[in-house]
């Protein structure tokens, strides 16, 4: 194994180990941070997965909210335990994702993005207007007797994040990834290569939807309360897209790096500046700066730097 690869593997193992230990520290603060970072990792990985296939989602809050409600209702009404409710949440998310993909079959780019945004907004209106299920604007609490304590929930979020990363990595090794990237450059091209985009589109959004719903479900167990504005908050979508952009889109580690950075940054600004307006303002500035100055994100910057350090001599040699 080359030293660089070895270093990467060691770093990955170290981070994984640390994450797995965190839930057992037992500090509410540590748990809270772990849940926030890991659920943002899940969201970011999910959003990046869809983007990898050229599907720009502005509706990740839809999956998040659906997952939250699926978990909440299955627990409160059917007595589902944490893992069972999460499976139900993921089913709901993947169903919504594949449905959305199938229905929007011919849309791409900005038009797909707008359709997902509308989808999320519809769900918010429906949730507000059906208080018999959702409690309406007043919201609903998770039945307190069902809550298993914060260690299992935190562990669940950590495991969920690791699982999503594993799935994302596994997919990147398969034909699925090649098909998705072909679709990203142009669905016409992918058709020419004999790839029918629709199944991949459905598959991709089913997986991405399940992931985002998982994050939503886990957060419900962490927070214990839900109302339509929280569940289908556009802010979730903003976070889901900003983390990959900051870290580096189309990469495996980019969303992780971005998620950690975003959570840290918004916590720090919250502590220093108080009102939440500042932390969102900084997110907005970050978004603009990233798009204009470093569209390949931190990972892209790092790669450029590493490439330069590897020596321009070899590059020139390869030129002739």
């Amino acid at each position: 194994m080359r030293p660089a690869t070895l270093a990467k593997a060691l770093a990955g193992a170290g981070v994984t180990g640390a994450l797995l230990v965190l839930p057992f520290v037992g500090s509410p603060l540590v748990n809270d941070w772990t849940v926030r970072i890991c659920s943002l990792i899940i969201l970011a990985v999910s959003w990046n997965l869809a983007l990898n296939a050229g599907l720009i989602s502005l509706g990740h809050s839809a999956f998040w909210g659906l997952g939250s409600y699926a978990a909440l209702l299955s627990a409160n009404d059917l007595g589902a335990t944490l893992p069972v409710s999460l499976v139900i949440a993921m089913l709901a998310g993947s169903l919504a994702g594949s449905g959305l993909a199938a229905v929007t079959g011919s849309l791409r780019g900005i038009f797909f993005a707008i359709a997902t945004l509308a989808f999320s907004e519809i769900l918010r209106v429906v949730a507000l207007m059906t208080p018999q299920f959702t409690g309406g604007a007043e919201g609903l609490y998770l039945n307190p007797t069902l809550r298993p304590g914060s260690t299992p929930v935190t562990l669940g979020v950590v495991l969920g994040a690791l699982a999503c990363l594993a799935v994302s990595y596994a997919l990147s090794l398969t034909r699925f990834n090649i098909a998705c990237r072909a679709m990203r450059s142009s669905e016409e091209t992918s058709k020419m290569f004999g790839i029918n985009p629709l199944p991949y589109r459905v598959g991709c959004l089913a997986i991405a939807g399940a992931m985002a719903s998982l994050a939503g479900g886990l957060n419900l167990w962490h927070g214990g309360f839900l109302d339509p504005l929280v569940a289908f908050d556009l802010h979730v979508t903003v976070l889901a897209q900003i983390a990959p952009i900051v870290g580096g889109i189309y990469t495996l580690t980019g969303p992780v790096v971005g998620a950690v950075l975003i959570v840290v940054l918004s916590e720090v600004t919250r502590i220093w500046l108080g009102a939440s307006g500042y932390s969102q303002l900084i997110l907005g500035v970050l978004l603009v700066v990233c798009v204009l100055a470093m569209p390949a994100g931190l990972i892209g910057l790092w790669r450029n730097y590493a490439q330069k350090r590897a020596g321009s001599g070899s590059l020139e040699a390869g030129h002739g």
């Binding site: 720009i56 900005i110 500042y278 500035v285 978004l287 798009v291 204009l292």
Partner: peptide, 27 residues
Amino acid sequence: RILNAPHVNQILLTFGFSLILQNIAAI
């Protein structure tokens, strides 16, 4: 600067402006 950038960059840029202006107003 982003006229020829991929759609996702264009969307995110104006989304970013939206966030910035909203929160400046809120502050």
